[in-house]
Design a protein around this nucleic acid. Structure first.
Length: 417
RNA sequence: GUGGGCGUAGCUCAGUUGGCUAGAGCGCUAGGUUGUGGUCCUAGAGGUCGCGGGUUCGAGCCCCGUCGUCCACCCCA
């Protein structure tokens, strides 16, 4: 038994899965960079205060924060998400707007792990600061949809809602509280507790006994100001114009307190486990101001890497890329020849590996086979004496003697380069 | 944070009502008459049965605790 294992909720991502992660981030980077987004790499930990802005009523802040005092007495937290960091960075650097950034990397939440939920989990995402235009909302959403399509996913449902401006949101919360409070006995115990913290979240309850009360609850749509309603309508028509399918879900309440107006969520219909929400986002006008900056509108989304990959598994798409070296050197004369050839061939641009410990040809060939290399380069006493090597095509088993001087050209031919 | 399932070789698992030196498949290593992989055959290495207590003549099997893991709730990506 090993002395140490990974901490709960963390894991090692090994090859070939790690290559899949890299490809995932690469596909995302390609899409958003082509749309004018710049890459931001915020720190993985920040002053705790940055994240408290996410919302005092969310569990992310109240019980899931990975926080600690550093040796300088600062109160530090591992980031639970990256939007707050991006806004902090905006206030710190004051870039010209619109500021369009994308990110990829791990976040941390102290939760009980289960499928699709880790204490260290990766997200990719974008944020745009300084623009209020509903066309931007639609474009940002379309970017995520395009990304899913590029992965090969089909079973993605986009839910859309508007939480209104902050005043709307507060009025709606009050109306909800009044509604649920007047029927408290019909509400589940869990939801009663939720009601205390955040009435909006009661709408999220999946308990059957709460369903009737939720169905009868006041509608957010009836609490929107004209401005918010107009904005929401414009977002919808822009989405239709872009050919993006969506469903309006006026019960959609996202977990973070800072959301205003447009909110959305992506659900993988191929996933049957509890965690089917694989991405989400929305507007957070006001967050920048909360962090000490000027009044600045903002919108963005974050997509969960782990869960999205789970959805890819379920649909059988976006497999891990196979990675193999081009050639594997089998040297039964001690290994010096292999060392030389490795250097030479790698410099010439080939992917090359070799065997060690002067093992038998049979065992070196097994390693060659396992490496996935298309070609084995065999060096025995005969080859050394004649300044040649044997080039063996693994799949067919055909092989031929090649002089050292012709090896590079020969490899190019065999590998089809 | 709450509830439940599970924890035996690197991996997937089997181990009967507690009873001798704990098994299989895959993987790994070495061979199969002396320069060759993927199929086949043979042999071999590898386990303080998560950890700590307890019950018992005796525990992988029972009890308690603990840690880990999985699932659901909660929450969320």
């Amino acid at each position: 038994m090993p002395t140490y294992n990974t901490s709960p909720g963390t894991r090692d991502i090994l090859a070939p899965e790690s290559a899949r992660w890299r490809a995932f981030q690469q596909v995302f980077a390609d899409i958003v960079e082509r749309a004018g987004f710049g890459h931001i790499i915020p720190p993985m930990f920040e002053d705790l205060g940055v994240f408290l802005r996410v919302g005092e009523t969310t569990e992310i802040v109240t019980k899931e924060m990975y926080d600690f005092d550093d040796k300088g007495g600062r109160r530090i937290a591992l980031r639970p998400e990256q939007t707050a960091s991006v806004c902090r960075a905006f206030v710190e650097h004051r870039p010209v707007t619109p500021w369009k950034v994308w990110y990829a990397g791990p976040n941390f939440r102290y939760e009980k792990p289960q499928q699709g939920r880790y204490r260290q989990f990766d997200q990719v995402g974008v944020e745009v600061l300084g623009i209020d235009d509903p066309q931007l909302d639609a474009e940002v959403i379309a970017l995520a949809v395009d990304f899913y399509r590029r992965l090969g996913l089909h079973g993605i449902r986009l839910s859309l809602n508007s939480l209104g401006d902050s005043g709307d949101r507060d009025r709606y919360a009050t109306a909800l509280r009044a509604h649920f409070t007047s029927h408290l006995d019909a509400l589940s115990t869990e939801s009663r507790a939720t009601l205390e913290r955040n009435p909006l979240r009661v709408l999220d309850s999946k308990r059957p006994e709460d369903a009737p009360l939720i169905a009868a609850a006041p509608r957010m749509a009836d609490h929107l100001t004209d401005a918010a309603a107009t904005h929401f309508a414009a977002v919808q028509s822009a989405l239709r114009a872009a050919g993006v399918d969506f469903v309006i879900d006026d019960r959609l309440v996202r977990g973070l307190d800072y959301y205003r107006r447009t909110t959305f969520e992506f659900v993988a219909t191929s996933l049957t486990a509890a965690h089917t929400a694989i991405g989400g986002g929305g507007r957070y006008d006001g967050l920048v101001a909360d962090l000490g900056g000027p009044e600045t509108p903002g919108i963005g989304f974050a997509l969960g890497l782990d869960r999205t990959l789970l959805a890819c598994d379920a649909e059988g798409v976006f497999a891990a890329p196979t990675s193999a070296v081009d050639a594997f050197i089998v040297d039964v004369t001690g290994g010096e020849q292999a060392a030389q050839l490795c250097t030479q061939l790698r410099a010439a641009g080939f992917g090359v590996d070799r065997a060690y410990d002067s093992r038998s040809m049979k065992s070196q060939m097994k390693v060659a086979d396992r490496s996935g290399a298309r070609v084995a380069i065999i060096i025995g006493e005969d080859e050394v004496a004649a300044n040649t090597v044997t080039v063996r095509t693994m799949e067919s088993g055909s092989q031929q003697l090649v002089s050292r001087g012709e090896l590079v050209e020969r490899l190019k031919t065999v590998l089809g380069r």
